[in-house]
Amino acid sequence: MTQSSTYPATPHGVLNTGVNTGKLGMWVFLASEIMFFTALIGSYIVLRLGADSWPVPGDYLAVPVLAVNTFVLITSSVTMVKAVQAFDAGDNDRSARLLLLTALLGCVFLTIKLWDYNHMIHNEFKINTNLLGSIYYFLTGFHGLHVLGGVISLLVIRSGVKSGKLLGGQHFRVEGVGLYWHFVDLIWIVLFAILCLV
């Protein structure tokens, strides 16, 4: 087996754009992710502008809890940056620890998220209660799935970093997961702002 069937090769050493293939793929993928969330957020805006009345978000959503969650996710972005830096510096152990920490913070986020859902459903605020409920569960649900995907990728990449299988030359794999994680983080900040604060 050549590298081509296991991981993107740069055939015959050609790499036309000068950007690593894996990293380019991640950017292209994120462009399409942005369109996905743009469609969702755009729909939210259209539905809200067209509605006769709109409930006050604070009446339904646990805004302080979500603010805490925002803080958790921002923190995880910081640890992600540190993890990439450590990996670049060749310190695989430290990088693996930081990646694990990032994944754990992601898990904390998801746990709080699930608690929040549970709490709201308990308070009779469900996906079919009103448009706010539909949009809240739908948008944050899709975001939650993205976080879950991110946590899994983090754990996979961590095992590679820890065992030393990933070396400096495969920098883009850690960086790619990092890009994705920052993207998920950014989306949450936007969602938090437009769902809870406006």
């Binding site: 292209v28 369109m35 079919n128 539909s134």
Partner: peptide
């Protein structure tokens, strides 16, 4: 495809929720 398939995917998922979860997008 990259730019617009996600958009229709969002619409399809919303309609799926309308059909199954009682939303009213």
């Amino acid at each position: 495809n990259l730019l617009w398939v996600p958009v229709v995917a969002a619409a399809l998922f919303m309609m799926f929720m309308d059909r199954t979860a009682g939303t009213a997008f």
